[in-house]
Simulated scan of single mutants.
Amino acid sequence: MSRYLVDKFLYTVDRDPELVERYREDPRGTVAWWESERANDLLNCHSGEASTWLRFADDERDALSTHDYVRLFELGAHPFLTLTLFIAMFERDYEEPLGFQKQYAERLSGFTLPYPDIAT
């Protein structure tokens, strides 16, 4: 598993409003496109350099493709990265203030310390 690559996906998608909308509407297609076109770009590198070996594991790809943030947490994705991206995608679907954040907290409430390791 590559927590780095999952966190990189969450980080880069969250910073691009068009990608946020694309991921909301077509998660499977966005994950496949990002993995083939962007996964190997170096973060904060503007010189066109890239690596060639980064790929999602099947369970990571499945969790990202279904917006399964609970499974992403289990896999070690950084909770702040998942929370901020999923707020951007789904907070608008709730009438109650902080509606999505409350759902996020409730769905993760079954976890006890120690939490999954989020070190990369």
Rank of each mutant, 00 (worst) to 15 (best):
M1W: 13
S2M: 00
R3L: 08
R3G: 14
V6I: 06
D7G: 04
D7N: 10
K8P: 06
K8E: 09
F9K: 02
L10D: 03
T12G: 14
T12P: 08
V13M: 11
P17L: 01
P17Y: 01
L19K: 08
V20D: 12
V20T: 07
E21M: 05
R22N: 10
R22F: 12
R22S: 14
R24K: 11
R24N: 11
E25H: 07
P27D: 12
P27H: 10
R28D: 15
T30P: 03
T30D: 08
W33S: 09
E35A: 04
S36T: 04
E37Q: 10
R38G: 13
R38K: 14
D41Q: 05
D41W: 04
D41L: 04
N44P: 00
N44H: 12
C45S: 15
H46V: 00
S47G: 12
S47A: 14
G48N: 02
E49L: 08
A50I: 00
A50T: 02
R55T: 05
A57K: 06
D58Y: 07
D59H: 10
R61W: 07
R61K: 12
R61L: 05
R61S: 14
D62A: 15
A63I: 01
A63R: 01
L64Y: 10
L64W: 09
L64R: 05
T66P: 03
Y69V: 04
V70Q: 07
R71M: 13
L72Y: 10
G76H: 04
A77E: 02
P79H: 06
P79V: 02
F80W: 11
F80G: 15
F80A: 15
L81W: 03
T84G: 12
F86Q: 03
I87C: 15
A88V: 00
A88R: 11
M89H: 08
M89N: 10
F90C: 06
E91D: 11
D93F: 06
D93L: 03
D93Y: 10
Y94F: 15
Y94H: 14
E95K: 03
E96R: 02
P97T: 02
P97C: 09
G99C: 05
F100Q: 06
Q101M: 07
Q101E: 14
K102I: 06
Q103Y: 13
Q103H: 13
A105C: 03
F111A: 09
F111E: 08
F111G: 10
T112Q: 14
T112S: 14
P114L: 08
P114D: 04
Y115R: 11
D117F: 09
D117P: 02
T120M: 10
